[in-house]
Design a protein around this nucleic acid. Structure first.
Length: 169
DNA sequence: GCCAACGTTGGC
DNA sequence: GCCAACGTTGGC
């Protein structure tokens, strides 16, 4: 299959990554050196493919808090390093160790992201559900569990707009 | 804590 | 290739 490179200048894509704030929250990203962290530990093939094949430097990423009292989008990050092998898959002491992964042909990939913006207020999941422009988002589909998702330009703009409004506006 | 829904594994 | 069983996700 031929790979078509995106044209220069109009190639930014948008994403959403989920994290459980008990494990790693937006403040943790801000506290990291240069606000950069590697997004390790993802063990889902579709999410892996996005990180390995499609996320590019300069792409923007919504930062979503899941499995917590107030699930929602809390800020924005950017991709600063595209897909490369996730070292934790080879670390026997790591909970994400994967004995089936061959170091010569790594199974799991990660990207580096840098914190760009903390929203003045979190946008709760319930509010996202109320916006008809967002009804196609994978995040909002019943049973959706994908931890790295695509976001369309339209959805991105609508959410950024929402982040500038007060709650419920 | 509950539980519905999901992705992966593995027997057949 | 089918599909039941399992472990995990994640809203509530």
């Amino acid at each position: 299959m031929t790979k078509i490179s995106r044209p220069m200048g109009s190639n930014r894509q948008y994403w959403l990554v989920k994290t459980e704030p008990g494990d790693f929250c937006l403040d943790d990203l801000w506290n990291a050196p240069n606000r950069v962290t590697h997004w390790d530990g993802v063990r889902n093939f579709q999410a892996r493919n996005f990180m390995r094949d499609e996320m590019k430097k300069g792409d923007l990423v919504f930062f979503y808090h899941s499995n917590c009292s107030e699930p929602g989008i809390v800020g924005v990050a950017e991709v600063v390093k595209p897909g490369y092998p996730d070292h934790t898959q080879f670390d026997k002491k790591n909970p994400h160790f994967d004995a089936s992964s061959d170091p010569k042909n790594p199974k799991w990939y990660m990207v580096d992201i840098r914190g760009v913006e903390k929203f003045p207020r979190a946008i709760p999941l319930a509010e996202l559900r109320n916006n008809p422009e967002l009804e196609g988002m994978p995040l909002l589909q019943k049973g959706s569990r994908l931890s790295v998702q695509k976001v369309s330009g339209t959805e991105w703009n609508a959410i950024i707009q929402t982040s500038k409004e007060s709650a419920g506006a």
